[in-house]
Structure formats: C-alpha cells, structure tokens
Simulated scan of single mutants.
Amino acid sequence: MSDDLTLVVSELVTNAILHGKTTRGRQVALVIDRDAKRIRVEVRDVGDGMPRQPLGGEPLPVSGRGLEIVASLSEAWGVIERVIGKTVWAELAIKPSDAV
C-alpha cells in the first residue's frame, strides 16, 4: 500500500507543479487523510485547467500518463473546482493486510 500511495502522491503533486501554474510565490497544498477504510490524498493548485484522464481507446502519449496511473491505483479520483484553482483527489482502500 505504501508504494501505491507514494506513486499517487507523486503523480498528483507533479501534475500540480507542471500544469497548475506553480511559479515563484505560488504553492501546492497536499492533504492526506486516513480513516479505517481508506486513505484520501488531495492536491490543490491555482491553475485553471481541468485535468482529464485519456478516454478508452485513445492512444497514450509518451508523457501524460499520470492520471491513468492514479486511476488504476485508486478506488476513486476526481477534481473539485475552486474559485481559484482546483483540488485533485484520490482515495485508496485500506485492505485488512494493510491495517496496523
């Protein structure tokens, strides 16, 4: 589970930095929340573009596969539009073998 979580966080933060207008003075916010059944990752940026996962049958580019990775590792993911920017979130299920 820690490998999947690390990869999801890395992909979402990288997308926010590359596409979310994170120039000098701009920030990316990361929130990780956990309960007994799931871990939720939220990454907020000030960019106005909305991310989208490639549609089925659409060829994948050499880069830009981050949301495909997030979707494959997550139970669910989505985008919340903000007045300024957006929050991209993903939830990973905690399996009994992962619980400590």
Results as ranks from 00 to 15, higher is better:
Val46Phe: 00
Val43Gly: 06
Glu58Val: 11
Ser2Glu: 15
Met1Gln: 04
Arg34Gly: 01
Thr22Phe: 02
Ser63Val: 15
Val62Tyr: 14
Val62Met: 11
Glu81Trp: 02
His19Arg: 07
Arg34Val: 02
Val31Ile: 03
Gly47Asp: 00
Gly25Glu: 02
Ala99Leu: 09
Thr87Glu: 12
Ala16His: 11
Gly25Lys: 07
Ser10Pro: 03
Trp89Phe: 13
Leu5Asp: 11
Asp35Cys: 02
Trp77Glu: 00
Asn15Thr: 06
Lys37Gln: 09
Leu73Met: 15
Ala29Cys: 04
Gly25Trp: 05
Asp4Asn: 15
Glu11His: 12
Leu12Phe: 02
Leu92Glu: 01
Val100Ile: 05
Pro51Glu: 00
Leu55Cys: 04
Pro59Lys: 14
Gly49His: 04
Leu18Lys: 15
Gly20Ser: 05
Glu58Lys: 09
Glu42Val: 04
Val31Asn: 03
Arg26Trp: 01
Leu73Gln: 14
Ile32Pro: 10
Arg65Glu: 08
Gly85Leu: 13
Leu12Met: 07
Ser10Glu: 08
Ala90Thr: 08
Glu58Gln: 14
Leu92Ile: 09
Ala90Arg: 08
Val41Glu: 05
Ile39Trp: 04
Ala29Pro: 00
Val79Arg: 11
Val9Ile: 10
Ile84Met: 09
Gly56Cys: 07
Val28Ser: 03
Glu58His: 10
Ser63Pro: 11
Val62Asn: 09
Arg40Gln: 04
Ala29Glu: 10
Glu68Met: 01
Pro51Ala: 00
Ile69Thr: 15
Leu67Lys: 12
Pro96Asn: 12
His19Val: 00
Val70Asn: 12
Lys95Thr: 11
Leu7Asp: 09
Glu68Gly: 01
Ile94Phe: 05
Thr6Cys: 09
Val31Cys: 01
Ser10Phe: 05
Glu68Tyr: 02
Met50Ala: 01
Ala16Val: 09
Asp33Thr: 10
Pro61Leu: 14
Pro96Gln: 10
